[in-house]
């Protein structure tokens, strides 16, 4: 790691005053599980880290009239253990459980999960976010078994690594960002973006902003997350899906189906959601929705297997959402 200065502010205003306008110089440190690793590889070489864990207002989970408010420095474990989250938003609880190392859950934060960088091995080896070499992406003809099968027309081929992002998109959550000049609120679905050039980022956060909190509206949905993984412990899923269903009796009145680890952003399968309107969720209708969700998939040379895994994730997430919980 390169030497850096370390700031430990106790108020949000103080922290915001320490940030700059360019990526790469100053970074916000929360759990550090991603940032410190990137710094050890010299992928990131900031001159300053601003630790935000000492800022009380960024913590805590509270019920408000607009919905459940989750502070950005809430740890994954705190979210996993939270009874109201489990009752109303099992999609988030299951996403937290999927982060299967207790150490990472104790250290990592919800805000950090949303802001973590992609796991693309080209990126992690220093080829940049778009894995370019001699003006061409290394991914399509390279080792792409974990890369995107949707939204992969280029130049980005990585998959969003966030565990909570897909569930938050499905739940219609809002993400609040603060800068020295004020606050703004971004829909979770707009927070993740596909970068169009090497200098762009994969999230809407700006370098002078801090993700302060997440608001999950109480929409009374039946929701779930299902992750398909190779190993039970400590690995990223190969494909996953989060779903949130508004129900009228036993039939769906509107469905949001969001795929994960298949595209540079959480990927909402709008048509598949519409296909469930007015239907009960059964193994058959869930299977149909799953097929529809992957209808546009265009796998790369080495990741065709992900199409079926993603279908399975959608089907099982839908069935899990409507499963009666004791």
């Amino acid at each position: 790691m390169q030497p850096f200065e370390y700031a430990n502010p106790t108020t949000l205003q103080e922290a915001l005053g320490m940030l700059g306008n360019r990526w790469g110089e100053t970074y916000v440190l929360a759990g550090g599980t991603d940032l410190i690793s990137l710094m050890k590889e010299y992928i990131e070489t900031p001159k300053r880290l601003v630790n935000i864990k000492g800022i009380k207002e960024l913590g805590g989970i509270q019920s408000t009239k607009t919905g459940l408010r989750i502070g950005s420095t809430v740890t994954v474990e705190e979210l996993l253990d939270h009874a109201e989250v489990r009752k109303s938003f099992p999609a988030l609880t299951e996403a937290a459980r999927g982060i299967s190392s207790p150490q990472i859950r104790n250290m990592g934060t919800v805000g950090g999960d949303l802001c973590q960088r992609p796991r693309c091995w080209y990126f992690r080896q220093g080829f940049g976010l778009l894995a370019m070499k001699d003006g061409k992406s290394l991914v399509p003809d390279g080792e792409n078994r974990y890369h995107a099968i949707l939204g992969n027309g280029g130049p980005a081929y990585f998959v969003s690594a966030s565990s909570f992002g897909p569930a938050l998109v499905a739940l219609g959550a809002k993400i609040r960002l603060a800068s020295a000049s004020g606050h703004r609120e971004v829909a979770a679905s707009k927070f993740f973006v596909t970068p169009q050039n090497e200098n762009a980022r994969e999230i809407a956060l700006l370098p002078n902003e801090i993700l302060t909190e997440i608001i999950v509206p109480h929409e009374g949905t039946k929701n779930a997350t299902y992750e398909v993984r190779q190993k039970q412990a400590l690995d990223w899923p190969l494909a996953a899906a989060s779903v949130a269903l508004k129900m009228k009796g036993s039939t769906v009145s509107s469905a949001r189906i969001v795929l994960a680890h298949v595209a540079p952003t959480p990927w909402e399968a709008t048509e598949a959601g519409k296909a469930l309107d007015g239907k009960a969720v059964t193994p058959e209708s869930a299977e149909e929705a799953a097929k529809a969700a992957l209808a546009d998939a265009k796998p790369l040379s080495g990741n065709g297997y992900k199409v079926q895994l993603a279908r399975v994730a959608v089907k099982r997430a839908l069935l899990e959402a409507v499963r009666a919980r004791g």
């Binding site: 440190l29 410190i36 880290l49 150490q103």
Partner: peptide, 23 residues
Amino acid sequence: DRATCGACTVIMDGKVVYSCTTL
């Protein structure tokens, strides 16, 4: 040294953490 293997685990304020990825 990358928050994966757990050999560096310590307990901080009652919670297990990776000391390799804690400053």
